[in-house]
Nucleic acid binder design. Sequence first.
DNA 1: ATTTAGCACTCTGCCCTTCTGAGTGCTAAT
DNA 2: ATTAGCACTCAGAAGGGCAGAGTGCTAAAT
Lengths: 351, 351
Amino acid sequence: MDLTDRQKRILRTVVELYIETAEPVGSKSILERSDLRVSSATVRNEMAELTALGLLEQPHTSAGRIPAPKGYRFYVNDLMEEHRLSLQETERLNQALHLKIREMDRVMDEAGRLISQLTQYPAFALSSGAARVTVKRFDVLLVERQAFIAVVMTSNGHLSNRLFRLPYVMDRQQLQLLASLLNGSFTGLTLEEFTPELIRSASQAMEDGAGLVTMVISFAMEVLEEQRSKLVRTAGLDSILSHPEYRDLDRAQPLMRYLSQEENVGALSVPEGETTRILIGPENVHEALKDSSVVLATYDMGDNTRGVIGVVGPTRMDYATVLARLEYFAKGLSQLFEQNQLPTAGEKEDV
Amino acid sequence: MDLTDRQKRILRTVVELYIETAEPVGSKSILERSDLRVSSATVRNEMAELTALGLLEQPHTSAGRIPAPKGYRFYVNDLMEEHRLSLQETERLNQALHLKIREMDRVMDEAGRLISQLTQYPAFALSSGAARVTVKRFDVLLVERQAFIAVVMTSNGHLSNRLFRLPYVMDRQQLQLLASLLNGSFTGLTLEEFTPELIRSASQAMEDGAGLVTMVISFAMEVLEEQRSKLVRTAGLDSILSHPEYRDLDRAQPLMRYLSQEENVGALSVPEGETTRILIGPENVHEALKDSSVVLATYDMGDNTRGVIGVVGPTRMDYATVLARLEYFAKGLSQLFEQNQLPTAGEKEDV
DNA sequence: ATTTAGCACTCTGCCCTTCTGAGTGCTAAT
DNA sequence: ATTAGCACTCAGAAGGGCAGAGTGCTAAAT
């Protein structure tokens, strides 16, 4: 797409004016805004050209122009200046990042909420579950004579535990045996490798405490399952309604539905190798997003896994600002994970 | 409020018809529905009476009547028949209750989601944090020479753990000491009783490992704090928009805002001694709920604490059905907590 | 003393028309 | 290539008229 300088200037002005006002932009307002030294007729001619190229569109014959998705795309790729965060903004973001929260769920909760507040769009946070999780280590703790706690540490540094009660008395030795058996046979295995045969043979090795093995193993499997699955948090749904493009319920409702379903939001992702992504209107696969845009940024969760945070809004979104804030926030999250000790209720495991 | 039988019949018919259709109810449709054997004029007279009593209201002179908040209240208290769940409904609810989820957060997540699906109204689930939580027991597990896991069991049966890394090597004996120290000084205390002095004196007792005490203790304090705080989950916000009374964005938006804020929803409660509660329109304290209704039901979380589940909808809500479903679901949750082992990642502690 | 038939009246929602103003596209002149 | 000028288009607001639902009241009937 080759545009003259003047055309670029015009396109950019249209986009920015439209982002501001949500009203179709006429030739005169362009002149007011940009410092083009031409007449409105010239601008009109250029706009006709840009429309022919599919960069602008006209809601109806006698209205101004609004950016077409292609126009936004061009703007985002080539025209948009990087938004420089103001001191206030970084201040606010930093403050938001000083959440002293340890649990994964909470972090994501907060992240979503904060981004939404910060951008005025509905936001979400995803943690892409660790692809290949294994149990790294089992521990068993005798609590009373008839109860013990099993602690499972997974390869991604997460710790889970559960209390088990038993109908009979258990001795320390038996527990010892259980622990070494579990550590011997089930560490380093992915969920799939927990085969029924393996479990059976381990149970048999345990003799009279055979039930214990299956109990703890099924707990471990739950943990693996959970660690593998994505965590999705959405926040700020209410802010949808404050944007004029969603005044129309027929637009707002499908979007809300979409955002209310975890599997939808969970499917949004950033291609390997990139750290951010912008999806404009029809570039979205899902029908419900066809006239909305999505801005995504990735953060580093430590153990080679990336999480995603993002916002959804009208195509008339303030891409520059949103992107800048999102990136900054994502970087902050990465740092949190790095220096800190997030993974759920435990500390990050480095090796 | 004394009403004749006929008046009650009419009021009830108006309410039920209006719940169904969302349209003002005229004298003729009342005759069609109920088996009153009088003329429409008589009904009109009665309706005028009911209106004078503040039980019905008229959107405008030439329209039918709609129930006033007082009318709903009367209906709910005296007229409403208990909704009998159909086989399908119980089926569906039972299915929903067979979530094999252990973690508190998840249960609440699911509960909210399910109730919303089941009722078609936005729903929420609250766990009212245990009022007086203490640490019941500390455990420490050596993981490597320079790392250990601390496990904290609280009085409400919750288990939390965290991994601590250290810059120096630690021996088993030291850990032993740490554990007995913690168990000796900090069990049975509420958060407030973790005084700086106590912590200081305990640290000193530990000599070279003084840092360990403060680390674990501050972790324990986080856990207590967390156990004490409410958990609020909201779901199904999108279903708001499918009800005609919220077609008007100026109604929908404040409600969504309200529901998006945890502290608002967290404030909803059921008085001691009751198990359910219905709040109709202006009976609600919060401005945003003035023309919506809330139905609440409590469930038993085991350790003398009650959780609340509820839905929010237009005053024209199908109270009977919603209440029945909510109660059933709440009972199911109570059972889950009872037989099962919910509290977060651990099992319920019975004594 | 109730109940009812009958009727005039009220008001909303809908459709249709008109009008206005913003903004265009085109033509002819520069 | 640019511009002034002008006719044209169209959405949205404003207003008028109409139909239908439903009321409240009066006077008659039970």
